[in-house]
Design a protein around this nucleic acid. Structure first.
Lengths: 253, 253
DNA sequence: CGCTCAATTGAACAATGTCAAGTTGTGTGG
DNA sequence: CCACACAACTTGACATTGTTCAATTGAGCG
């Protein structure tokens, strides 16, 4: 979900410390994710049990009701957390980007399923090892707590959108969320914002509580109004962010 | 939340240890809420700054954007957390019952407003004192973390409802949620479940992302189908929980 | 009794979903 | 490079759901 202010004192000096495990040294999430709260000893300990994995787009790697034995960090790509109803209706209840942590401490079975929306790189480690470490490291727990609070804020933001926004506003808000998540590096000042949609229409629909057709129509209408430019169905350019914002964020606060 | 061995210890201590602050001794939330994680010294320290307050139904005690200086525990009643859009559309993004904790650690302004849905009793303490205590007490932080995770689970449950359930299913699910929250004490085995709705129609509508009229129609329809009995608009009896469940929880998992 | 706020009900209407074609995009084997 | 197949996306006509507006009934209270 939309990362809020997540990273504070994450910069720690491992430049001088060669005891950082090899697998972690070049990790994209090394400082930004929860690992930033670990000492090099802890990092070494976790890394002994760590596995990197690639998950192909659209494959589910945790199912509702599963016994979960591992936590993961998202290193790249986008993960959908979904809930399914008996008759097949589906709803995305959370989106996780790098360097988010996936897992539910203090509970062994998953209430949601996790599925790769794009190709995803994960760093996984056994729940047992991590749980022990969480119990011993208040810093680590605090970081997890902060992430949970951010996710709660995000969830509430989407509760407002799902409950009260029109289809047009939902789609605009979604595009805005993605736009605001674009790598600051890729942001060319004064150039229009441009990005690849990480979700296909069906996923956007599942996220917004709409149908594919409605999503498509709303995107078309934003396109015809000149608020966005779409190429190859997935590449979106926003000439004027404020104009997009005006369509989705009639929000107070 | 299941009582841990810590609770037991604390309970035993209470009996022999007269250092428990007077204000806390008869507190309904003393053991169940976050205070259960505090030592008697910490409890004494907090209690020095603690104020009890009553909030009348329908009055707002935190507004969106407010600088929040206090945390609170809900001792009795129901609190609505709401978000408001510029044009007046409103959505309830969370409901808090005793002994829930109200507040947002690591952030000074509130993204939501808090309003009493019923008459409410609160126990409030300064953010600064509590923040310090949280920093020093991993047990306390863990309890808050657990509550945040539970609230996140709840929020996701409602995201599914808001995004994918019909009006009829939403209302049934809401009634079910309230029914399942009824004091276990009041549960007479083999007698039908009966409770007072803590929310008026307008609040239920704001919670479910519907209009007052739709909520009213759905309640009428459940009533005519014999699934619920309604007296004085607020008193609801559910003769057969499973039958109600079948109308709202076509849920997997 | 006569307020007032809360809740219900009805009828017309708008927004979104459903169903059924089409079209575009992409990868694959010839 | 083309032809084909398949998936993702778009578009239109129509059905359904939920909203809006307006009127009415019910409940609590001085």
């Amino acid at each position: 979900m939309a990362p809020t202010s997540r990273d504070e004192n994450q910069k720690r000096l491992d430049i001088h410390n060669s005891s950082i495990p090899v697998i972690c040294r070049s990790c994209e999430a090394r400082h930004r994710g929860i690992c930033g709260a670990l000492t090099s000893e802890q990092l070494t300990q976790v890394s002994r049990h760590t596995t990197r994995q690639q998950v192909a787009a659209n494959s589910e790697f945790v199912s509702t009701g599963d016994d979960v034995k591992h936590y993961s960090n998202v290193l790249a790509g986008v993960v959908k957390l979904t809930r399914l109803m008996a008759d097949g209706r589906q709803q995305i209840v959370g989106l996780q980007f790098a360097p988010d942590f996936i897992g539910r401490p203090f509970r062994d079975t998953s209430e949601v399923s996790a599925e790769a929306a794009t190709n995803v790189k994960l760093c996984s480690f056994p729940k047992s090892v991590m749980d022990e470490m969480i119990a011993k490291s208040p810093d680590l727990e605090r970081r997890l707590y902060k992430q949970a609070l951010d996710q709660l804020d995000d969830a509430r933001e989407w509760i407002l959108a799902l409950g009260r926004k029109s289809a047009a506003e939902k789609v605009a808000s979604f595009l805005l969320m993605i736009a605001e998540n674009v790598d600051p590096e890729k942001l060319d000042r004064d150039a229009p914002i441009c990005f690849e949609l990480p979700l296909k229409r069906a996923d956007i629909a599942d996220f917004l509580g709409l149908t594919i057709e409605t999503v498509s129509r709303q995107i078309t209408s934003l396109r015809k109004a000149g608020i966005i430019v779409v190429e190859h169905n997935r590449t979106v350019t926003v000439p004027d962010l404020e104009r997009l914002r005006a369509h989705g964020e009639m929000d107070t606060g």
